[in-house]
Design a protein around this nucleic acid. Sequence first.
DNA 1: GTCATTTACTGACCCAGGTCAGTTTAATTT
DNA 2: AAATTAAACTGACCTGGGTCAGTAAATGAC
Lengths: 231, 231
Amino acid sequence: MPNKDQYTGCTVSLHRCRCFDRLSREEHAFLDERSVLINYKKGEMICKKGSFASHVMFMEKGLAKVFIDDGINTLVLKIVPSDTLFGLSSISEHNNTFQYSVSAYVDSEIRQIEIGAFKEMLVRNPLFAKEVIETLSMNSTQVNGRFFCLTHKQSYGRLADILICLSDRIFKTKDFDLPLSRKELAELSGMSQETVIRMLKKFDADGLIGLQGKSIQILDHPRLKRISETG
Amino acid sequence: MPNKDQYTGCTVSLHRCRCFDRLSREEHAFLDERSVLINYKKGEMICKKGSFASHVMFMEKGLAKVFIDDGINTLVLKIVPSDTLFGLSSISEHNNTFQYSVSAYVDSEIRQIEIGAFKEMLVRNPLFAKEVIETLSMNSTQVNGRFFCLTHKQSYGRLADILICLSDRIFKTKDFDLPLSRKELAELSGMSQETVIRMLKKFDADGLIGLQGKSIQILDHPRLKRISETG
DNA sequence: GTCATTTACTGACCCAGGTCAGTTTAATTT
DNA sequence: AAATTAAACTGACCTGGGTCAGTAAATGAC
């Protein structure tokens, strides 16, 4: 077999954190009592990089982007779909602030788990800790693949990646209404708004996708895949 | 205070893993007995992405690059200096292979710790696990900063970053002999060999650095820093 | 409904930096 | 020291995709 590793700019890991499966009924209750459920509206900021991290978060239902920025440019690290634990980077003792910002793509329901309780659970239940380690490690691998892709693939490939990712992993259908603006799609694939628009039109003209405003359908998945792979 | 976050393409975290400080004498001995010490020569492969991960590693002395590649392009995720734990991404149960490759920049001495023993320790000693989580989390933050930088800064800024990083964090002197070729410096700053050479020459001509072959001295640290920040 | 504002789109321009094809210098080998 | 090979460097060329300056369409406000 060939040793060609393929990376994608995909933003969502297939990994689901199993840490809560490791908890006893009491432990589960312990965390539950130290959690609150918050609703966010589309576009709302869920947490801001640099602010005090008083909790880790669990996306009950919704979709959000995890990103860092310098005031001018934005880099989307990953997307958080339903049933995902996030904000783990703030477990660190010496860095009790969020290491990234998160904002809602759509109306979202998020459970905040008090960080002290979460940390206590790490020490109380080693299997829980082990799953958290697993999740952190899978996250890194995911982000690294995306890192490779954004630095070494060209734009067509990156856009194809994102379209495939949206279809396969996020909406799980070939035909979906994009809750993102072109601008957001652009920062997701690491390029300018204008380029995204031009390339979407190109894909549409070439019969790879169907495009009517926010509604996108994947018409030629294999060819899209090939574009993603070849650049 | 302004809310402008600065990211650098820096490859080395200042974080040192304190997990071993959490071990009792016996636990220390336990891991020691399940470790081996291996020497690698400059340029030698320390581990290959995709191969079975039978151990985590500790850099006793040396310098190595952690990278992923697709056969054509290489992306250096980070540099591993002395006294650093690495290869943690292979702790995962469901992914018992290395998630990246590592190769030695200079002759290096590396302790391999049998992964079963390491995982056992994670469960046996929760404070140990907590420190490992901390390290994973710091690693991510570090790589994310680099990610931002390589995707959003231009080449001069990235090269300035790397030079500052080499001087401040790796060699800890303003005057050092680079153990890397221009090609390696290029992949470190995410650009082509030719561009690195041209820019080094430019920095030299502008009096920012002194350049004689492999020997580099940082002459104008503040200005270099400014270049790193602005472009 | 009309107006205002945001989002989507188009075209023209341009330049950072990659690629290619060399030459020069340094490091190894014999 | 001559011969190879690899690394460092130079110049010419070219293009992917960013930026800017608009227009068109969609969405929301009143």
